[in-house]
Simulated scan of single mutants.
Amino acid sequence: MKSFTLATDCRNLACFSPGLVATFESQLISFAGSAGDVLRRSGVPTRHSGKAQVRNSIAYGWQVAVRTTLLQIGVTVLVALIATMFELRIGLATLAGGAIIAVGNMVFAVRLFGRGVAPARNALRSAYAAEVLKWFWLCLALYLAIAVLKLPFAGLITGVLAAQFSFWIALIAIR
């Protein structure tokens, strides 16, 4: 408040000495700019430093979900290509196993973040419902892959493990 009062008082003096007020204002702006530079260099976030002050948890959650899913799909495709060198059916099973995990995690994210901003109780219920849906999907898809499609178990579990390990690594690496 004192600097505002001082600047206002100096502006009132502008009718007497406009050059003095302009010099004072430029020094005041220069001082504020140098303080901002010191804060930016020190890593302290300021209002004008270009760094986000508050992270939108829903938008950030969507970004993390998309990034981790893309990483899971990428790792799964890479591992499936390597597994295809052994046998085509094993490569397809690896691709199916990784896709099951990646789709499960995306189902979780859609259910958790799909409603937008919600009270804490509803967010907790969404998290529980998302986890139930993910496990339902996982059980159904693994049943279809093993019992109905009769995919090779070694390839299937390799894809599942590759996607799950890439998910854990992504949660640590992607921030």
Rank of each mutant, 00 (worst) to 15 (best):
M1A: 13
K2E: 12
T5A: 13
D9Y: 05
C10L: 15
N12S: 09
A14S: 14
P18K: 10
G19D: 15
L20R: 13
V21W: 09
T23E: 11
E25V: 10
A32K: 12
S34D: 11
D37W: 05
D37P: 01
R40D: 15
S42D: 11
S42F: 08
P45G: 04
H48W: 07
G50T: 06
K51W: 11
A52R: 15
V54T: 12
V54W: 11
R55V: 15
R55E: 14
S57Y: 14
S57G: 00
I58P: 07
A59P: 07
G61L: 08
G61T: 04
W62I: 06
W62K: 04
I73H: 02
V77E: 06
L78V: 06
L81Y: 10
I82C: 10
T94E: 03
L95E: 03
G97C: 04
G98K: 05
A99I: 08
V103W: 01
G104H: 04
F108Y: 09
R111S: 13
L112F: 09
G114V: 06
R115M: 10
G116V: 05
A118C: 10
R125E: 13
A130Q: 02
L133W: 10
F136I: 14
F136L: 15
L138T: 10
L140E: 05
L140H: 04
L142D: 04
A145R: 01
I146L: 12
I146F: 06
I157Y: 04
I157M: 07
T158N: 01
V160Y: 08
A163T: 01
F167N: 12
I169S: 08
L171C: 00
I172C: 00
A173W: 09
I174D: 06
R175T: 02
